[in-house]
Amino acid sequence: MEYNMARINQNSLMSLEAYAKARPEFRKQAIAHKARRKIFVGDHVMLQFEDEITVRYQIQEMLRIEKTFEEEGIQDELDAYTPLLPDGSNWKATQAIEYSDVEERKLKLVELKGLERHTYIQVGTQDRVYAIADEDLPRENDEKTSAIHFLRFELDASMVAAAKAGEPIAVGVDLPAYNIHVLEIAPETQTSLVDDLK
């Protein structure tokens, strides 16, 4: 199955019946694709970089789980997830703060308040680009942050050119309570991210 970066719309989505038939193969492809676009910053922060395939898969899965087939419900899912599509000059990612122990997670979400705004990407020797977080709705309050955030990293023309020229892409978090810099991401991840840039 081939997919392109065209905007996802109701006409390009599969019906519930068609998706049920295509799902085993599409799911396998989507999971492998998502794995290539996943970056771990230390042991407890994961960035899942989104694109047409990851977003399409998420929408189809939500429609399947909720058994949604009416136009209004389908449009609600499109409205919720298509803002995660990169626009050609940025990268968009779902950030998860992951602690398996529930009590530890509660404590860490207090300690790591603001982590999403301290998350950055750096292309080569260019300046760090800090995430613009949670543009749809606030996911942090006065006491704690959320375990899930939606991030946008906006690149200028020189950063785009550097990434396309093969300059290494680094990611990190520089919050004092969680200060980790991943010097270089996997080559297959870098290739996939560069594909997002126009």
Results as ranks from 00 to 15, higher is better:
D43M: 10
Q75A: 00
E111A: 12
A133F: 06
H33N: 10
A32R: 12
D43Q: 15
D76E: 14
I121A: 06
K144I: 04
R27P: 01
R64S: 10
V129E: 00
V110Y: 03
Y130N: 01
R117Q: 10
A80V: 07
V102W: 06
W91H: 11
Q126F: 04
D136E: 14
R23E: 08
P86V: 01
A133C: 09
E98I: 15
Q60C: 04
S89W: 08
F49I: 07
G114D: 02
R105N: 14
I121M: 13
S89D: 09
V102H: 12
F26R: 13
V45A: 02
T119C: 11
E61K: 05
S100M: 07
D79M: 03
K92E: 02
E61L: 07
H44F: 08
K144S: 13
K106R: 07
K67F: 05
V41D: 02
T68G: 03
Q75Y: 00
K108Q: 15
E140R: 11
W91S: 01
A22F: 07
Q48K: 09
K38W: 00
R64C: 12
Q58M: 09
E50L: 09
M46K: 14
I97G: 01
F40L: 14
L84Y: 02
E143N: 07
A80M: 12
M62P: 03
R117A: 12
E140Q: 14
R128Y: 03
K38P: 00
R139T: 06
T94A: 02
I132L: 11
Y57I: 01
E135M: 10
A131N: 00
Q48T: 11
I74R: 08
